[in-house]
């Protein structure tokens, strides 16, 4: 069972994003992590190999040289080794990223399954699973919160709104975009972290894989903070009822209700 996990190096979701210039952000002192949705994919991949009793999980990342540190934490979660395709473009377009992921995987081995997350928490493009699948001509299912793989067939569930779920069926190998609910990613123990330091991370440049840098710059034209509200108008009133009545009146007067 040869399983590949495409994982992105992204700013920690709890971190503040300091905007630099018109369309960039400052990475000085910014904590980076494995994209949280990719971790659900990684956990599923590790469990799959553990269950099969043979094979390995390989982490594949397209990102800057510093992404190797982020990959160590994925290796501590049970991946055997990593492949880093180096690119300093913070807003690398997803088509180029998918081609680079495909080329890196193909150079390494023959995938029985490919996992990733439903979206990345930095650029929120939500399309890498589809593009990687297209590159391999594999079936794909995204936003998956339950998965079963048996006899060359994958059965996957995704929420389609209001708590209703769709059950999708496809052949393997396929690409699965994971979301919360699929599993509870393990918390690496100290020996796992130590072992991960010695695991292999192969590095490539885009050009080594025959990938052209994108023709146009994927960076946004402008990046700006979402304005915060200045603070609540607190409903005053002697009683709960008076406060509630004032609120309803305010909402009605401003045509919100």
């Amino acid at each position: 069972m040869q399983v590949y996990v495409c994982a992105k190096h992204v700013p920690d979701t709890a971190a503040n994003i300091k905007i630099k210039g018109e369309n960039d952000y400052d990475t000085t002192g910014l904590k980076f992590v494995v994209n949280p949705y990719d971790e659900y994919g990684l956990e599923e991949a590790v469990r799959l190999v553990e269950k099969a009793g043979k094979g390995e999980v390989v982490i594949v990342t397209v990102g800057p040289a510093q992404a190797a540190n982020t990959m160590r934490s994925a290796l501590a979660m049970g991946a055997a080794r990593g492949i880093l395709v180096k690119s300093d473009d913070k807003f690398l377009d997803s088509r180029t990223a998918a081609r680079a992921l495909k080329a890196a995987i193909e150079k390494d081995g023959s995938p029985d399954m490919i996992f990733t997350g439903k979206t990345s928490v930095d650029t929120e493009g939500s399309q890498t699973p589809y593009r990687v699948a297209r590159e391999f001509d594999f079936p794909v299912a995204n936003e998956i919160s339950a998965l079963e793989i048996q006899d060359g067939k994958a059965t996957a569930e995704r929420e389609i709104g209001g708590g209703a779920r769709e059950v999708l069926e496809m052949s393997t190998p396929c690409v699965i975009g994971a979301t919360k609910g699929l599993n509870e990613p393990r918390y690496p123990k100290f020996p796992d972290i130590m072992k991960a330091k010695k695991k292999e991370i192969k590095e490539f440049e885009l050009a080594d894989l025959g990938i052209d840098a994108p023709a146009s710059d994927g960076a946004p034209v402008k990046l700006e903070p979402v304005p915060e509200r200045s603070g609540a108008k607190i409903m005053q009133g002697g009683s709960v009822r008076e406060s509630v009545e004032e609120l309803v009146k305010t909402l009605k007067d401003s045509k919100v209700l």
Binding site: A232, V244, V248
Partner: peptide, 25 residues
């Protein structure tokens, strides 16, 4: 902290406020 970042607020226990809100609406 939510009161710093929203438009309108009621300071009170939701178990007291919400039923009254339902009634008033």
């Amino acid at each position: 902290p939510i009161f710093e970042k929203c438009d309108y607020g009621i300071i009170g226990d939701m178990f007291e406020v919400v039923p009254v809100l339902t009634e008033v609406l």
